[in-house]
């Protein structure tokens, strides 16, 4: 059981402030496949970044650099929207 907060210590109205929530680890929900990118084919259109429902697409400034597998659920949207087929879904080795 996580430690629960008494009512006086809670933010008023349950407001969630920056840094209040534990980092999500939705990557653990992934079953089967995960996306991998061939960066040499990537045209940096950032459609994958735009579509990703879990903010798993990592950028360096405005440049696509890879995936955050701690939050990627393996939904495949990125691979589907990639216009140059730079993203492939592969067997998840648990990384």
């Amino acid at each position: 059981m996580p430690e629960l907060t008494a009512w006086r210590e809670l933010p008023l109205g349950g407001v969630v402030r920056p840094g209040d929530t534990a980092p999500p680890h939705t990557g653990g929900w992934r079953t089967g496949l995960k996306p991998v990118v061939r960066l040499e084919s990537c045209v940096n259109c950032l459609l994958c970044w735009l579509y990703c429902p879990d903010s798993a697409v990592q950028l360096d400034g405005t440049t696509f650099v890879g995936f955050d597998y701690d939050v990627c659920k393996g939904c495949e949207l990125c691979a589907v929207v990639c216009p140059v087929d730079a993203i492939a879904m592969v067997e998840d080795d648990g990384d």
Binding site: L4, L10, G13, G14, V15, P18
Partner: peptide, 13 residues
């Protein structure tokens, strides 16, 4: 200072 207001509260809160 972005906040989430009116969040879901389960039986624990």
């Amino acid at each position: 200072y972005p906040t989430t207001q009116g969040p879901f509260a389960m039986p624990d809160y």
